[in-house]
């Protein structure tokens, strides 16, 4: 069982209820396969995720964190996703302060009809983080 030794990253993904969570569901109904390393947390809007939540998750041992929201112009709450985009810049600065690689965090837009995109984005993120190796905060 060589696989036991291989590093399996833990990825947390905050999905907005209206677009991305539905996109994740669609990946399921379309039976699109992606690595089982992702744990999805449903929030109402991508703009609801406080930068601290992302940093805390990373410092508590997540190897990667994603926020998924509606495409610009499609936000259920008008422009919550654009607020999330602004905050993503702040999160990137914080990552540096905490000695974390910028690739450990990603903000992406996934609509309710983009099941394939959701599966693809998750696959990419798992691969990226797998290459980076475990988070320095992982125990």
């Amino acid at each position: 069982m060589d696989k036991m030794n291989e590093f399996e990253p833990k990825i947390l993904t905050f999905c907005c209820n209206w677009c991305s969570y539905a996109g994740a569901d669609l990946a399921g109904t379309s039976r699109l396969q992606y690595p089982p390393n992702v744990r999805i947390i449903r929030v109402m809007c991508s703009g609801m995720v406080h930068p601290n939540m992302v940093i805390e998750a990373l410092t508590k041992g997540a190897d990667g964190v994603m926020i998924c929201g509606c495409h610009p112009g499609d936000c259920h709450y008008l422009e919550g996703n654009l607020k999330a985009e602004k905050r993503a810049e702040a999160i990137e600065l914080l990552l540096e302060d905490f000695g974390l690689e910028p690739e450990r965090f990603r903000l992406v837009w996934v609509s309710a009809s983009e099941g394939p995109r959701f599966a693809q984005v998750m696959t990419e993120m798992v691969e990226t983080v797998r290459e980076l190796g475990p988070s320095p905060y992982a125990t």
Partner: peptide, 30 residues
């Protein structure tokens, strides 16, 4: 939508049913 909650630097505003401790509990459990 909770944009206020994610903007506040002092935990001075929250959204019922999506309180930071409720979301963080899921993070910790994960």
């Amino acid at each position: 939508c909770g944009v206020c909650m994610a903007t506040c630097p002092k935990q001075g505003i929250f959204v019922w049913h999506f309180k930071p401790e409720q979301i963080n509990a899921m993070v910790d459990a994960a």
